[in-house]
Amino acid sequence: MGFFARHIERVRRAPDDSLLSYVVHSPAGGLEPGELVGLCTLLLFGGHETTTTLLINTLALLLERPDLREWLAAHPEADETAVDEFMRIGGPARVMPRKVRADHERGGQRLRTGETVFLCIAAANHDPAVFERPGEVDLLRDPNPQLGFGWGLHFCLGANLARLEARIALRMLLERFPAMRPAGAIPPIRGGVMGFGRRPVPALLR
């Protein structure tokens, strides 16, 4: 709250060419202070942190699996399906919390209105009833109904941008640094209930 409040006031006084300045001087700038900070927070975490974590997790996998890295480097036409597969197995979100809207029973459990439930994206993305060989990495998997970007009314507003950013970043990385290799131990998958990121990922690029 304090961080964004300071920067919002700064660009109010002295507009610049930043996204924050554009937001503040657009119709959205008339929001209540708390709402405007909330919008900025959404842009930060939804438009930056999650994509960064996806790229870090993907880099860790490519360093562990040079066979995947070499194959992807030689097949730029697979970038689109590859990003969705990386999202399926290494997306930053593990669960999505939701409120129960109406009393009902699911999986033998009684759910009551207003209770908080956690929908496990990681489990859904490895459901053998939906994905053939869910434990394998298939960079040509198509269709790939992975739920890393959510679904329905709650589908990620920035999904297309995140896919584009990831495709561009990975292709540039593969083309500029074809000899990259681990510079130390790659951290194992760890994280909390909400998500995970494999940090730090030490790599020698040249």
Results as ranks from 00 to 15, higher is better:
197 G>F: 00
109 Q>M: 12
14 A>C: 13
176 R>D: 05
106 R>V: 15
133 R>K: 14
127 D>N: 04
135 G>Q: 14
22 Y>V: 12
182 P>H: 02
35 E>D: 15
96 M>D: 10
204 L>F: 13
16 D>W: 08
8 I>E: 03
117 V>C: 06
204 L>T: 14
122 A>V: 05
187 P>T: 03
161 L>P: 04
179 A>N: 13
154 H>L: 01
24 V>D: 11
4 F>T: 04
161 L>C: 04
85 E>N: 03
20 L>W: 02
29 G>I: 01
157 L>Y: 08
156 C>N: 00
34 G>W: 10
144 N>V: 00
184 G>W: 03
28 A>I: 09
120 C>D: 14
194 M>H: 14
192 G>L: 07
69 R>T: 09
76 P>I: 06
101 R>I: 15
19 L>V: 15
41 T>G: 12
206 R>H: 15
152 G>L: 01
129 A>W: 07
194 M>V: 12
42 L>G: 10
54 L>K: 08
15 P>Y: 01
159 A>C: 04
79 D>I: 04
111 L>Y: 06
158 G>V: 03
195 G>Q: 07
146 Q>Y: 02
165 E>Y: 04
177 F>A: 11
185 A>W: 01
52 T>V: 15
9 E>M: 00
76 P>Q: 07
127 D>K: 05
175 E>S: 12
106 R>G: 11
153 L>S: 13
196 F>K: 10
162 A>W: 00
71 W>V: 04
206 R>F: 13
55 L>A: 05
84 D>S: 14
47 G>I: 01
95 V>L: 12
191 G>P: 10
42 L>P: 08
136 E>T: 14
181 R>K: 11
37 V>S: 03
102 A>F: 10
70 E>K: 09
94 R>T: 10
78 A>K: 14
52 T>Q: 13
127 D>M: 04
181 R>T: 09
169 A>F: 06
143 P>C: 07
83 V>T: 06
43 L>F: 15
76 P>R: 04
74 A>H: 06
185 A>H: 05
34 G>S: 15
178 P>T: 08
134 P>N: 10
25 H>P: 09
185 A>S: 12
199 R>K: 12
10 R>P: 06
150 G>E: 01
66 P>M: 04
51 T>N: 02
183 A>F: 00
186 I>P: 11
161 L>T: 02
23 V>W: 01
171 R>W: 06
37 V>W: 03
21 S>N: 07
61 L>K: 05
170 L>Q: 08
199 R>F: 13
172 M>Q: 14
127 D>E: 02
66 P>Y: 08
128 P>N: 05
120 C>Q: 14
189 I>P: 09
118 F>I: 05
199 R>I: 14
107 G>F: 11
24 V>K: 09
188 P>M: 00
75 H>K: 12
157 L>V: 12
13 R>M: 09
125 N>M: 03
110 R>S: 13
136 E>N: 08
126 H>S: 11
92 P>A: 04
